Simulated assay, not measured.
Amino acid sequence: MNISKQIVGYLKSRGLVLASLETCTAGHIATMLAELPGAESCLDVALIAHTRAALARLPGIEPLAIANGPGDAAQNEALARALAEALLVQRAVGREGANVALASVGWLSVGQDGRAAAAHGLAWACRQRDGVSSASETVLFTGRGAEVKRSIARRALLGLPRFVDSLALAR
């Protein structure tokens, strides 16, 4: 089964609605899901930001949390986590709003040979009765630009059920 079908099925089976925010993947994560029939029932909003300045203008984000320049791996991970949490809080509009969010933050550095590298921060957040829970990780991706974007999108999507299921186990 492909990842998109797997994730849409997972979201639907648990009554989850996703909000996502992407930087260098430029909407690849949302596109992977939105292409499937019935995805509208489990995809609330997908945001794409190509600059840190754009991220800083999002509601609920502290401007000081967003440094100028590409940032390092730790900054990208912390920023991804803050963005996932803020996006989830911002989208909490009753039963129709998102109850899970993912954020993918990093910028590709393309070399002379066309190969790219990204120290990418990935984060997932989930609304629960007692607030918002979140998790994050940093992963180094290398390869051709398009390969890196696909790898980031796959890792972000596959991390969502792993994260949500870990919350259920922790109860």
Rank of each mutant, 00 (worst) to 15 (best):
1 M>L: 10
2 N>E: 11
2 N>V: 07
3 I>A: 10
4 S>N: 13
4 S>L: 08
7 I>N: 02
7 I>C: 04
9 G>I: 11
11 L>K: 07
12 K>C: 04
13 S>I: 15
14 R>S: 04
15 G>N: 13
15 G>I: 14
15 G>D: 15
17 V>S: 01
18 L>R: 07
21 L>V: 01
22 E>S: 08
23 T>Q: 08
23 T>M: 14
24 C>N: 14
24 C>W: 05
29 I>Y: 03
30 A>Q: 13
31 T>R: 14
31 T>Y: 13
32 M>A: 07
32 M>Y: 03
35 E>H: 14
35 E>F: 12
36 L>D: 05
36 L>M: 10
37 P>A: 09
39 A>D: 14
42 C>I: 13
42 C>H: 10
43 L>C: 04
44 D>W: 06
46 A>C: 10
48 I>C: 11
48 I>R: 14
49 A>I: 03
50 H>N: 12
51 T>A: 11
52 R>A: 00
55 L>P: 01
56 A>R: 12
57 R>M: 05
58 L>E: 01
59 P>I: 07
59 P>E: 06
60 G>M: 12
62 E>C: 11
64 L>N: 10
66 I>S: 00
66 I>C: 01
67 A>E: 13
67 A>W: 08
68 N>D: 15
70 P>Y: 06
70 P>R: 13
70 P>H: 08
70 P>V: 11
72 D>S: 09
76 N>D: 10
76 N>A: 11
78 A>I: 02
78 A>P: 02
79 L>A: 04
79 L>I: 12
80 A>D: 09
80 A>Y: 05
81 R>G: 02
82 A>P: 03
83 L>V: 12
83 L>T: 13
83 L>M: 15
84 A>F: 00
84 A>D: 01
85 E>Y: 04
86 A>M: 02
88 L>R: 07
89 V>N: 07
89 V>M: 09
91 R>I: 01
91 R>D: 00
92 A>G: 15
93 V>R: 15
93 V>M: 12
94 G>Y: 09
94 G>D: 09
95 R>M: 00
97 G>P: 06
98 A>I: 01
101 A>V: 01
101 A>N: 01
102 L>M: 03
102 L>G: 00
104 S>V: 09
105 V>M: 04
105 V>P: 00
105 V>G: 00
106 G>W: 10
106 G>E: 09
107 W>K: 11
108 L>H: 06
111 G>T: 11
112 Q>P: 06
113 D>S: 15
114 G>Q: 10
115 R>F: 01
116 A>N: 08
120 H>N: 09
121 G>Y: 04
122 L>K: 05
125 A>P: 03
126 C>A: 13
128 Q>C: 12
128 Q>Y: 08
129 R>W: 05
132 V>R: 11
136 S>P: 03
136 S>G: 14
137 E>N: 04
137 E>R: 15
139 V>W: 02
140 L>D: 09
141 F>I: 01
142 T>I: 06
143 G>N: 05
145 G>A: 08
145 G>K: 10
148 V>M: 02
149 K>F: 02
150 R>S: 09
152 I>G: 01
153 A>G: 05
153 A>N: 04
153 A>R: 06
154 R>C: 03
155 R>D: 08
155 R>Q: 13
156 A>M: 03
160 L>P: 02
160 L>W: 02
162 R>P: 02
163 F>T: 00
165 D>N: 15
167 L>M: 07
167 L>P: 03
167 L>K: 05
168 A>N: 12
168 A>C: 10
169 L>V: 10
171 R>L: 10
